[in-house]
Amino acid sequence: MSILVYIEQADGAIKKTSLEAISFAKALADKEGGDVTAVALGSIDQGELGKTGSAGAAKVLHVNDEKLNAGVIQAHAAAVAQAFEKVGAKTLVLAKSSLGDAVAARLAIKLNAGLVSNVTDLPDTGSGYKVKRSIYTGKAFAETELSTDNKILAVKKNAIDLKTDGADAAVENFEVSLDESVFAAKITSTDQATGDILLPEADIVVSGGRGMKGPENWNLIEDLAKELGAATGCSKPVSDIGWRPHHEHVGQTGVKVAPTLYVAVGISGAIQHLAGVNSSKYIVVINKDPEAPFFKAADYGIVGDAFEVLPKLTEAVKALK
């Protein structure tokens, strides 16, 4: 039996978190038996579709309809439901994201499937079907039992290592029939930073807080981020005052990141900020106040003035190469 994976694209490129979801499904299929079929919506070229194979998919169903390039929630849900039927799948895996969540919720009803989000580990299928998920914004976990036949797992970033050694996936064109009503919500325009590393996907994040004093100093954050190949983030007050755009705001009420390295500069480490970063593997804190609460959540720390430390650190990273 196949496990179906819903993959997302941005401008024709498959998202890295979606490839991780394929690797997650592959590990699950290896355990349970069966293989992995991915479903890709919209215009994506063959080479890009091939990446699903290296990540672990045996097959990819491609719905080559440009109306699905944008993330129209209802239309995506309807198309994925048809793929689920076609494959005869019992399990759907996807990456947790702003679109993934919205699509998965509708699919849960369409497919009569139990949905678990923020999944952090492979399911325990020994007796029953238990899945570990992160709750209380990363402050706890819940071992969750699914009682339904059909299941949907929305996987949190870094739940599994991305596979890159799989064989090529067979690409199959897949036609879906979509009612006009699924396009009821019309996307009129998009306004997206291009070429940047997306914050929720980034392996390294450099974030600045109010301690950076003003937007004119952000070049220091950006220089370090560039050397590290990192995305940039910020604390809530920084986006509230408009120093940085809202989609960079990290924390309880913003983006929850799960990078391998999070560098926090001039951020005090309020509990609401920590809630967005507590899934990071390593945390580095740079703050001039040795009593800043962030040091308690950090692996490495430098007590010092950001304006002195940042340029030196950027140089030191550069020197490494």
């Binding site: 402050k139 969750t144 039992e145 490495y300």
Partner: peptide, 18 residues
């Protein structure tokens, strides 16, 4: 469709290296 079997807390963080 779901029920929680058990809640868990993350392991305690070690000390920061300054």
């Amino acid at each position: 469709a779901t029920s929680v079997v058990e809640f868990q807390l993350p392991p305690a963080k070690g000390d920061v290296k300054l």
